Simulated scan of single mutants.
Amino acid sequence: MRRRLSIPELGGARAVILHRPHATVAALTRQLHAVGLQVDCCWPDLPASVHGADFLFLDVDTAYDDQFPWTAGEAPLPTIALIGSEAPGRIEWLMNFGADAQILKPVGDNGVYSALLIARATFDARIGQAGEIDSLRRRLGQRQTVVQAVTLLAARGKTEDEAYEQLRAMAMAWRISFEEAAARIVAKPDASATKERDNG
């Protein structure tokens, strides 16, 4: 079942605007202050304090890869793209950067609040999916390790079922998880066999 999203409280959050001095920055700052955010403006370098910020606004028309201390698509905070140019090269750069929301320039008197909410929700979903993928990869790796361990044990003259039960018994005897026992056997099959005989 899909989790229902709720509107987060934004008051007291901090936004960084990476944009050369411009009327766009003044318009953004007014809207962000109205919502209750603190604002830091910078150009062309991002301060180290960006890692403690809650949102990053960036000017797609002039931004470039070396400004960001992270790999494209892996920003550690919600990012909002400010788009003025629809030049193919700039749009391609934006697609590779992977912003969580966007605002078209020129920036007027509205649009920032919804962009903040969309960016937050998109960022949270991206981080959640990345965690789920990592978890699935770990589980898949553990299953492959169990299969390898059972294969090693079966090579000692046991059936697959007997090898599986032996692995379970070894995990209980060593007081570790099934997967940890499998990893130990795969890492040092001979040592595991000796330990099993010693415990038996």
Rank of each mutant, 00 (worst) to 15 (best):
W43S: 01
D45H: 10
A48V: 01
V50N: 09
F55W: 11
F57S: 09
F57W: 05
V60F: 11
D61Q: 14
D61G: 08
A63L: 08
A63M: 14
Y64H: 15
Y64R: 14
D66A: 14
D66G: 11
Q67F: 04
T71W: 12
G73Q: 02
E74Y: 14
A75V: 05
L77S: 06
A81Q: 07
G84V: 05
E86V: 14
G89R: 14
R90I: 14
I91L: 13
E92L: 15
F97G: 06
F97V: 02
F97E: 00
A99F: 06
A99P: 04
A101L: 06
K105Q: 13
P106E: 00
G108K: 09
G108S: 06
G108I: 03
D109L: 11
D109N: 13
G111A: 04
G111Q: 01
V112T: 10
S114E: 13
L117R: 10
I118C: 10
A121Q: 12
I127T: 13
Q129W: 11
L136M: 09
L136E: 04
L136H: 06
R137P: 02
R138T: 04
L140S: 11
Q142S: 04
T145R: 01
V147Y: 02
A149N: 00
V150D: 04
L152S: 02
E162S: 00
E162M: 01
R168V: 01
W174E: 06
R175Y: 05
F178V: 03
